[in-house]
């Protein structure tokens, strides 16, 4: 318990979380503070490239093992299965329609790459190493949840067609292409490549993450201000409970795979996080009747801040306790 509190305190008082809090507070106070759209896009490109590249270098240094393939399979299964659990929970806890519940459930099977990036930063700050290929697991977990949500809807007799454009947008969305592409570049170029560009992708990383999370805080705060009214108590409770349930499944998968303590923590983070970029876009195309203010506010305004502030230290502490690291 003491370890959890220490980690939580350190995390809450880190520049990363305080930057996020500043953004939320500014948005809630209706400040005109904003990060230009193009700058925010550039920051996210930088973070995705850096995290992918470093993951590839790590795989290059430590070599490939069977765990990579198994971790990918585990990630895909988790992504496909978690929406089914989320859907059942939503039906019990909330009065959401089948359509809204399926759309929300899809978000909780997919992942938030920003939460993943923040978690890797916390691990690095604590000197905890993790499997570099967790970046590839993150990419693999983006899409299966969307298929599960559409299956849930089709079971209710409302068949939805996935057109080829939607497939392309999901599987080749910019974030996945950049993450996987930079991972491969890091893998191919290894430590030598990292040395060449480390002054760009290692040293400034946390500063850039602070600015990016400031923007995320602004977006989350605006979302809460605008959409907070649509979230009833049961829906709000789901936004906190579901990450804990997801993280438990991630924990079980990580332990079964024999991942390192850092790897288990990241698997928990991935399973606990909820998408707010790829899945909302897919839902707007495939399930346009579902209410975006529910799933976006829940994912971005409730689950994302929860994971960022309390979830990550909790997952790291639990992974540490159960792996004996």
């Amino acid at each position: 318990m003491e370890q959890i509190l220490t980690l939580a305190t350190n995390n809450l008082l880190s520049p990363i979380i305080l930057s996020f809090a500043l953004g939320v507070a500014a948005a809630l106070a209706r400040s005109d503070l904003s990060v230009p759209e193009a700058a925010a896009k550039a920051l996210s490109i930088y973070l995705l490239f850096a995290i992918g590249f470093k993951g590839g270098v790590s795989v290059s240094s430590h070599g490939l093992d069977a765990k990579l393939g198994l971790s990918l399979i585990a990630g895909i299964i988790l992504s496909a299965a978690l929406p089914l659990i989320a859907f059942a929970l939503l039906k019990v806890m909330t009065g959401l329609s089948r359509l809204d519940a399926a759309a929300v459930a899809a978000h909780y099977g997919s992942i938030s790459i920003v939460t993943f990036v923040a978690a890797t930063s916390v691990l690095e700050s604590s000197g905890i190493t993790s499997e570099g290929y967790m970046v590839a697991v993150a990419a693999a977990m983006e899409a299966p949840a969307i298929l599960s949500a559409l299956w849930l809807i089709s079971r209710g007799g409302d068949g939805r067609r996935m057109d080829s454009d939607l497939w392309r947008e999901i599987l080749l969305n910019g974030s996945i292409v950049l993450l996987v592409g930079s991972f491969l570049i890091g893998w191919v170029t290894g430590e030598e490549g990292l040395t060449e560009i480390s002054s760009f992708i290692v040293a400034p990383f946390k500063g850039v993450l602070c600015l990016f999370l400031l923007d995320m805080g602004l977006v989350a705060g605006r979302g809460l201000r605008r959409g907070g009214g649509v979230l009833r108590p049961g829906v709000l409770a789901f936004g906190v409970l579901m990450p804990l349930i997801g993280s438990a499944f991630g924990l079980a998968a990580g332990l079964m795979l024999g991942l390192s303590m850092g790897g288990v923590a990241l698997m928990m983070v991935l399973s606990a996080s909820a998408s707010y970029i790829a899945v909302p876009a897919a839902m707007r195309v495939a399930l346009p009747e579902a209410d975006p203010s529910i799933y976006l506010t829940l994912s971005l305004g409730v689950t994302f801040p929860f994971n960022l502030t309390l979830g990550i230290p909790l997952y790291v502490a639990v992974a540490s306790a159960l792996t004996g690291a």
Partner: peptide, 15 residues
């Protein structure tokens, strides 16, 4: 019908 919005406050292309 869904209320006011501004592009600067949106994340991703969904909204």
């Amino acid at each position: 019908r869904s209320g006011a919005w501004v592009r600067a406050g949106e994340i991703g292309r969904a909204s």
